[in-house]
């Protein structure tokens, strides 16, 4: 992995190398980020140092989206603003949907 490996390997770098990446995280919520990061590493390794910024832009964007959820949040905010705008205009009858069932998603041990 270019750019993410240690200069020299010792047992200590093997032990602490995982905290710099997502690859040692066994959290089930993080599986997608792990896979995307691995794809990014593979792409970086294939493209080489000067080219990976251009060649791996999609992989990098996907990885950052998985880590920050920025695009998803912007999507939700856009939907909510559109909903409020249409309700204030009068074209939308109900301002909000009813709440989802609380046990249907997000409970501990959901996965």
């Amino acid at each position: 992995m270019s750019g993410h490996g240690a200069f020299f390997n010792t047992p200590l770098t093997d032990l602490t190398g995982q905290i710099l990446t997502q690859q040692g995280d066994n959290n089930t919520n993080n599986l997608l980020c792990r896979a995307l990061e691995l794809q990014l590493f593979k792409c970086m390794e294939a493209a080489g140092v000067p080219n990976y910024r251009r060649a791996c832009k999609d992989e990098f964007d996907d990885f950052m989206e998985c880590r920050t959820l920025k695009k998803q949040q912007e999507r939700s905010v856009t939907i909510q603003n559109e909903r409020i705008r249409q309700f204030n205009e009068g074209t939308l009858k109900e301002k909000y949907l009813h709440n989802p069932e609380l046990h249907s998603y997000g409970a501990p041990g959901w996965q």
């Binding site: 997608l32 995307l36 964007d61 998985c66 695009k71 998803q72 939700s76 909000y96 709440n99 997000g106």
Partner: peptide, 29 residues
């Protein structure tokens, strides 16, 4: 996100669970 997919390299048929705030996106904040 408009015409741009949220994950560009993930296959569109691959199932992704939405985050909780998107699950509640149509409800009162």
């Amino acid at each position: 996100w408009y015409s741009e997919p949220v994950y560009k390299t993930v296959h569109p048929n691959h199932w992704l669970d939405p985050p909780e705030f998107e699950y509640w996106a149509h409800c009162d904040r």
